[in-house]
Design a protein around this nucleic acid. Structure first.
Length: 302
DNA sequence: TATCCAAGGTAAGTT
DNA sequence: AACTTACCTTGGATA
């Protein structure tokens, strides 16, 4: 086992691990103690979280464990976890620079203040795609529960430090799953969406990564080829996996926010409203602002 | 103990 | 293109 530390005071803007992994951006991390996201947890604790990675996209999977104690990130893994953590948790983003190009109205000021150090995530594309297909009409805690169930049922076992973990399933594993089994895991009507989208990836018909090379709005359009992926889910994949930091998923929370705080941005269609709110949130890093606002309002801010 | 409701929307069918 | 409607499941609220 390797262990290491990352001094958060060396990260521009610091870090808030719990908010980063529990704020509904990523459903691919889990609490080491086995409690679910449905169970409330006080903000600012020092709990361990884990996920799995495949070094070099092939090779043997590895478990990554990480926790935050004050201004230090501690990790444990079979491999050197630091580069993976920097990648997955966007530890090299300069939060101060991002904040400085974001408008300074009261809502944004309070949201950024409340979760100082929260970062966007960079989830693996398939996990992000499936997670947000599952997110339709569903709560954060249950979306997370579904992804954990998919790991248990269709992932590969990984032993680490005397415990057994499961990787996130491969496209083939999800494509080979029966719709009935996917429903058994609690996916409901999303089961055939997940299966058919996984088949598209497994058959080489489409890959979420292809969107990376396109201009933002073309990338969003491209992702909607997947079954169960409309404009909102596409924006989530672009923002939380593919690095389009300007993407603003128009979910129920942001739509309410638009009504109350940015009524001029309501333009009827998704595409036009998206452009307007993106501009109102500062453009280039509008997705960062969206994520802070989402987390702030969902936790009862205001 | 029963019933109802809503949760990070999307697909399919109508105007 | 814009507008309706159905859709699985389940925790929490209401009766």
């Amino acid at each position: 086992m390797q262990r290491g530390r990352i001094d958060a005071t060396t990260l521009a803007g610091g870090v808030d691990l719990q908010s980063t992994v529990e704020s509904g951006q990523s459903y691919l991390w889990a609490r080491e103690d086995g409690t679910t996201y449905e169970e409330e947890r006080a903000h600012g604790g020092d709990a361990w979280y884990w996920t799995t990675v495949r070094p070099g996209d092939r090779g043997e999977p590895a478990v990554l464990r990480v926790r935050q104690t004050d201004s230090t990130l501690e990790w444990e893994s079979r491999i050197d976890a630091e580069p993976h953590l920097r990648h997955l948790l966007r530890l090299d983003d300069d939060l101060g620079a991002i904040r400085s190009v974001t408008p300074d109205d009261r809502l944004l000021r309070e949201a950024f203040e409340a979760y100082r150090g929260m970062r966007l995530v960079r989830d693996p594309p398939l996990g992000a795609l499936v997670s947000f297909i599952c997110s339709a009409q569903m709560r954060v805690g249950r979306i997370h529960g579904m992804q954990m169930a998919l790991r248990r049922e269709f992932g590969e076992q990984v032993a680490f430090d005397g415990e057994t973990y499961h990787t996130y399933p491969t496209p083939d594993a999800l494509a080979d799953a029966t719709e009935a089994k996917l429903r058994d895991v609690g996916l409901g009507y999303r089961a055939p969406y997940v299966k058919r989208s996984a088949e598209m990836v497994a058959d080489g018909e489409a890959r979420p990564n292809e969107a990376r090379d396109l201009a933002y709005e073309d990338a969003r359009e491209s992702l909607t080829r997947f079954v169960g992926v409309g404009e909102k889910v596409a924006d989530c994949v672009l923002l939380f996996s593919l690095g389009f930091l300007e993407a603003v998923p128009l979910d129920t929370w942001i739509r309410t926010t638009i009504e109350e705080y940015y009524p001029d941005c309501e333009r009827g269609s998704y595409a036009e409203t998206s452009r307007a709110i993106r501009a109102a949130l500062g453009g280039e890093y509008a997705g960062y602002a969206q994520t802070y606002v989402f987390h702030y309002l969902r936790n009862g801010g205001e």
